[in-house]
Every structure is written in structure tokens, then in C-alpha cells.
């Protein structure tokens, strides 16, 4: 019996030790770690900020304004830098576009604008067909763009042209991929329709081109951008537009500074009506800038 008592005592001691062990087992810190590890599955969500803004230089990007946002865009393209000090390296003369873009619903935005050159009005609708995701399923973002522009410049009684003659249509597919946190690329097959060719020879009423856009972030708020459009068919004495610029994103504002050989800011003008080149006898590199300021004008209440 004595032996059994000793055994019993041993078991009791063991039990107490076990109990001590059990008490210590509740460790929320370890529980949190294991829960976190269990929940650490790869997320698959839409990528944000493929580009800083809805335009890179002249061209549209796949970015879509969020619903209820209004983007006020002021764009300037100056005269060629090589005009020298007399024109203050081009700053004396400017072509200007004032635009208002609106995010309507998720994945849909519209915009209107007015350009001083040729007194042109334009408007567009941009719809996001597919949104690139961080995980599997959607490696690209694809947008569709439909745009219209009307020149209201009066050519005078010697050159009668109706409003229809001065109307232009654009259809564009924007295909972009954010390759990593810093680098994004976009390819944009583009179709421009002219009702009448005014001031140019060659080419045709149906004009095709492919745009190539790239962005490389160099800090959290600054990126270097390049934009090039290859014209499949072209008017005589026109050049492919090439622009190189910098985006400075201050949060709310995006400042876009660039050098470009095009004066136009709407699809048909900058792609097909660029009459200066980067090099050669017709060289005319210009300085230009876009300022984008986003306002929240509606939608969700506080």
C-alpha cells in the first residue's frame, strides 16, 4: 500500500506539472502568429497605379478615375525650343488644352476638353474591360476608348468646310501591364477616322497607328515616361510622335513635364498631324506640361 501511495504521489506531482504546462499553453502571441501564417494566402486583387494619371503625355493610359472624382487637366505645349532666346526657347507661344474628366461608375469615365489650336472641342468615353490582378487570372488591363473631336476654326469663305468635315473620330484599345511595382508598359492599337483631310496630302480617311507607352518609377512619387506612336499609314511630311517626360505625383496633383515633337493633345492631332521631328531639318522639340488636379465632387457621403 505504501508503494501505491508513493506512486499516487508521483502521479499527482506529474499531474500538477502537466497543469502548469497547460496553463502556459494559452499564448495569444503564438496564436496570432499561427493565425497570420494560416491566413497568409496570396492575395488576388486589382493592381492600382499602373500609371500615375489617366494620360501619360498625350495618350490615354488604362487608368480610370474613381466614381465621383473630377479631374481638372490643364495642358500646355510650347513652341520649339530651337527658336532661341527671341521666343524664350518656345515659351512665348503655347497651345493649350483645358479638360474636365469625370469618373462615372466603376470602370467608366468620360471627359470633355477644349484646345486652343484649331479651336477644337473633344470628348471621350473610356471603359475598363479587364483589370489586371496581382494574382492569377488577369495579367493585363484592357480599356476601350471612344473619342470625338470637332475643329471650330473658321477657314474663311475661300475654303468652305462644314462641321462634319472638321469632325474626327478615334477608337483605341489600351492594353497595359504593371510588370512590377516600378515598371508599367502599354500598347495601344488606334484607329482615327477623318471625314475630310484638310491641310495634308497623302494618307487616307482611315488612319491606323500603334502606341507604345512605358513608365519607370524612380521614387515613390516620381516616374520617367516615354510615349511613341508608330503610324501605319501617314500623311505626307508628318512624323511619328515621341515624347519623354517626368511625372511628379504629390497626391491629389500630378505634374507631368515633358519634351515632345507634337503640338496636338487629341488623338488625331498628336498622332497624325505632327509636323516636326526630333532630329533633322524639321526638328522641333517642344517643352510641355500637364497639370492634373483631382476633386471629389459627389457620390459617397461622409
Amino acid at each position: 500500500m505504501m508503494i501505491f501511495s508513493k506512486r499516487l504521489l508521483a502521479v499527482l506531482c506529474l499531474g500538477l506539472i502537466t497543469q502548469q504546462g497547460f496553463s502556459q499553453q494559452v499564448d495569444l502571441f503564438k496564436m496570432q502568429d499561427s493565425t497570420n501564417a494560416a491566413n497568409a494566402k496570396p492575395v488576388n486583387e486589382p493592381v492600382i497605379n499602373t500609371f500615375y494619371s489617366t494620360r501619360l503625355v498625350n495618350s490615354q493610359t488604362v487608368e480610370i478615375l474613381s466614381p465621383g472624382s473630377m479631374d481638372l487637366r490643364v495642358s500646355h505645349r510650347f513652341s520649339p525650343v530651337n527658336q532661341g532666346i527671341y521666343d524664350m526657347f518656345g515659351l512665348d507661344l503655347a497651345s493649350m488644352r483645358l479638360g474636365f474628366d469625370f469618373g462615372i461608375v466603376k470602370d467608366l469615365m468620360v471627359g470633355i476638353g477644349r484646345t486652343s489650336t484649331s479651336k477644337e472641342y473633344d470628348w471621350f468615353v473610356k471603359y475598363r474591360l479587364m483589370h489586371q490582378k496581382t494574382g492569377a487570372g488577369a495579367p493585363l488591363s484592357i480599356d476601350l476608348l471612344g473619342a470625338m473631336a470637332i475643329k471650330t476654326l473658321d477657314f474663311g469663305p475661300s475654303f468652305p468646310a462644314t462641321t462634319s468635315d472638321k469632325t474626327y473620330y478615334t477608337a483605341q484599345v489600351l492594353i497595359a501591364s504593371k510588370l512590377n511595382n516600378n515598371t508599367s508598359i502599354q500598347v495601344s492599337p488606334t484607329y482615327n477616322r477623318y471625314n475630310r483631310i484638310i491641310g495634308f496630302t497623302g494618307g487616307g480617311l482611315d488612319m491606323f497607328s500603334i502606341g507604345f507607352l512605358a513608365r519607370q518609377k524612380i521614387s515613390k512619387r516620381v516616374s520617367i515616361n516615354a510615349e511613341y506612336f508608330w503610324q501605319v499609314n501617314r500623311f505626307d511630311n508628318t512624323y511619328d510622335p515621341l515624347s519623354i517626360g517626368v511625372d511628379i505625383n504629390t497626391g491629389g496633383h500630378v505634374f507631368q513635364l515633358h519634351f515632345t515633337n507634337s503640338t496636338g493633345m487629341n488623338e488625331h492631332t498628336f498622332i497624325h498631324e505632327t509636323t516636326s521631328s526630333w532630329t533633322g531639318k524639321n526638328s522641333g522639340i517642344r517643352w510641355g506640361f500637364n497639370i492634373s488636379r483631382i476633386f471629389n465632387i459627389g457620390g459617397k457621403k461622409k
Binding site: N49, S66, G252
Partner: peptide, 9 residues
Amino acid sequence: FKLAEMQDH
């Protein structure tokens, strides 16, 4: 956030 742009930033 109330402002979607701010949430992105």
C-alpha cells in the same frame, strides 16, 4: 477612406 484616390495613395 472617403476619397478613393487617397485610399490608393
